[in-house]
């Protein structure tokens, strides 16, 4: 039973928002959880965060950046098109509950994961501060949505084209120096999460991160997404995707993220050379 795209919107030149019919997932999904989708018979299975859900309409919303072959192909789909397979909700749901004052740090498309968690944190009665960052103005997403939830929202761009110029860690350090927070929650590019954890560690601030890894089944069967958390091997798909950032073996994680880098390159090249390539014939 394929899954129909009911809305397809571009949020930036590389970021897309899809609303997809998936009634049972819409009913069950909670903040922090994700889906795995497979586009077609020859497709790979990739995980994507569930940003929004609408149980009444029976839809879920995903926001994704075009980085690999599958996300590029996904981006080429239009309203009314169908995705062959979607399974979810997968992974553990966010459940930190009431902690007091929480600070959220989102980078790039990771902001799409921050949004439902901020909503959850607000419902749980927490004080909310949000820092989001992107390379440039055009790539800043969900600013308005977050502004509605967060009395204090700081926007950072690498080139200063919007908000303040610089990295998310700059205002983070300032805030942590000036005030006491009870929890940090960070989602973004791997290196940004690592650097953010380095900062919060100095301030002994508990930090949750949501890891994104290559997966196959995403049900705990294959172990390709394994990470080392406080010295123990865990699977991102079933034990995560949320982990305590200060316990993550970032060095290992960053290296493991590159395990199919050559193949991914080849896959994109093959897709772009599609006109000449007979492999899809």
């Amino acid at each position: 039973m394929p899954f129909r795209i009911v809305e397809a919107k571009r949020l930036s030149s590389i970021t897309n928002l899809f609303q997809i019919e998936a009634a049972t997932i819409a009913k069950k999904a909670r903040a922090g959880q994700f889906i795995v989708l497979r586009l077609d018979e020859k497709g790979e299975r990739i995980p994507l965060t569930i940003t929004r859900r609408d149980p009444a309409k029976g839809t879920i919303t995903i926001i994704f950046q075009e980085v690999g072959k599958t996300t590029k192909k996904l981006a080429s789909l239009k309203k009314g098109d169908k995705i062959q397979d979607i399974i979810g909700p997968l992974g553990k749901k966010t459940d930190f509950g009431y902690v007091g004052k929480a600070i959220f740090i989102g980078g790039g498309v990771g902001v799409a994961e921050i949004l439902p968690v901020v909503e959850y944190a607000k419902e749980s009665g927490n004080g909310i501060t949000v820092i989001i960052g992107a390379r440039t103005k055009e790539l800043v997403i969900l600013e308005e949505e977050l502004r509605k939830l967060a009395p204090r929202l700081i926007v950072m761009t690498d080139d200063g084209s919007h908000g303040r110029k610089g990295l998310v860690t700059t205002p983070l350090k300032e805030l942590l120096t000036a005030e006491k927070f009870d929890l940090a929650y960070c989602v973004g590019p791997d290196i940004m999460m690592k650097v953010t954890c380095d900062v919060t560690k100095e301030f002994k601030l508990k930090t949750l991160v949501s890891l994104d890894s290559n997966m196959v089944d995403a049900t705990g069967m294959c172990g390709t997404c394994r990470v080392s958390i406080g010295g123990a091997t865990k699977f991102v798909c079933v034990d995560g995707p949320e982990f305590e950032g200060h316990l993550v073996d970032w060095d290992l994680f960053l290296k493991r993220q590159k395990r199919f880098v050559n193949e991914e390159k080849k896959s994109i090249e093959c897709n772009e050379a599609n006109a000449q390539c007979r492999c899809r014939a």
């Binding site: 790979e44 395990r259 199919f260 193949e263 080849k266 896959s267 899809r280």
Partner: peptide, 10 residues
Amino acid sequence: RFPEYDTPIR
């Protein structure tokens, strides 16, 4: 059958 099929193996 990679890259005809999208899932890689090394």
